[in-house]
Every structure is written in structure tokens, then in C-alpha cells.
Simulated scan of single mutants.
Amino acid sequence: MRYTLLLYYPEPTAEELGPEAIADGMRAFQAYAKALEDAGVLVSAEVLQPSNVTTTVSLTGGELVVHEGPFADSTEQLGGTFVIEVADLDGALGWARQAPSASWGHVEIRPTATRWVDGSWLGTPPVG
């Protein structure tokens, strides 16, 4: 089953973190991605730019409304994703607990309902 691990954590500035903490974080995520890859479960991974460069859009009365910044105003922001293919939720939980950001933020585990492959949707409609 395919799951997306959504990594939420605070966004301190590079100055607040310092070069040593940044280097430590990069090494931790490199090791995590390598472990996922070596286990054969990694489908893709994305590190997102900081939320202050986010643009959020919606339609109000048929008109496009553009908002500079993230959808949610919170102390934690979505910082990246890992898409993994594992047998079940227990497998996803095992990998999510190893995400470096689990110790300073949250990891949301979301099952994939459908995905676009070669011009068509595969999978089942979302439940709930």
C-alpha cells in the first residue's frame, strides 16, 4: 500500500538554527532517505521551500483569490513529504517513527487513494 508521510515542524530561520544544526539535519534526512531507498520502499521524496514563499489560491464567487503564505497559520508548517510503498499501516508507522522530524514536529501518515499514472487514475476513491 502506498502512503505519504507529511512532515510538519517549526520553521526557524537559518540564523536561528546555526550552521551546525543545519548540517546535522541534512545528514539525518540523507540517512533516512537512504534507509528508505535501501529497504526498497521509497517512491519519492520532496523537501519544500519555507512557507513564507508559499502562494495559496482559492475561488470565491468564481474569482481567483491569491494569498501570499501558507493555508494554515500555525507554529508548524509542512516541510516535506516521503511517499513510500509498504505492506500496511504498521509498516508506514515503523518508517514514520524514524523520520528525523518526528522528534521536533509531527509526521502525518496518509494512505494514497488514487494516483495519476500514464494518463489515467489508478486506485480506489477516498474513504470517509
Rank of each mutant, 00 (worst) to 15 (best):
M1V: 12
R2A: 01
Y3V: 05
Y3M: 07
T4R: 11
T4H: 07
T4Y: 05
L5I: 08
L5M: 11
L5K: 05
Y9N: 06
P10Y: 05
E11I: 04
A14R: 03
E16Y: 01
L17E: 10
E20I: 02
E20Y: 00
A21I: 01
D24K: 13
G25H: 05
G25A: 13
M26L: 12
M26V: 10
R27D: 10
R27C: 00
A28V: 02
Q30T: 14
A31G: 01
Y32D: 01
A35E: 10
A35N: 05
A35G: 05
L36V: 03
L36G: 02
L36Q: 01
E37R: 08
E37P: 00
E37T: 10
E37V: 00
D38E: 15
D38N: 08
D38T: 08
G40C: 11
V41A: 04
V41T: 07
L42P: 02
V43S: 01
S44W: 00
A45V: 06
E46Q: 13
V47D: 09
V47S: 10
Q49D: 14
Q49N: 14
V53R: 05
T54I: 04
T54C: 10
T54P: 00
T55I: 15
V57K: 00
S58M: 12
L59W: 03
T60R: 15
T60V: 14
T60H: 11
T60A: 10
G61A: 05
G62D: 07
G62T: 05
E63D: 13
L64K: 14
V65H: 11
V66A: 08
V66D: 04
H67G: 00
E68K: 14
E68M: 06
G69S: 05
G69D: 05
P70F: 06
F71I: 13
F71C: 06
F71P: 00
A72Q: 04
D73P: 00
D73E: 15
D73Q: 14
L78A: 03
L78I: 12
G79V: 04
G80T: 07
G80R: 07
T81I: 15
V83Q: 08
I84R: 02
I84E: 03
I84S: 01
V86L: 08
V86F: 10
A87V: 14
A87C: 02
D88H: 12
L89D: 07
L89Q: 12
L89A: 12
D90G: 14
D90M: 00
A92P: 06
G94V: 04
G94H: 08
W95D: 03
R97F: 01
Q98N: 12
Q98W: 00
A99C: 14
P100I: 04
S101Y: 07
S101H: 10
A102Y: 06
S103D: 12
S103V: 09
S103K: 14
S103M: 04
W104V: 13
W104T: 13
W104G: 06
W104C: 09
E108A: 15
I109V: 15
R110S: 12
P111Q: 09
T112Y: 00
T112F: 02
T112D: 13
T112V: 15
T114V: 13
T114W: 03
W116H: 10
G119I: 13
G119L: 13
L122D: 11
G123S: 08
G123F: 04
T124A: 14
P125Q: 10
P125I: 12
P126H: 08
V127Y: 01
V127S: 14
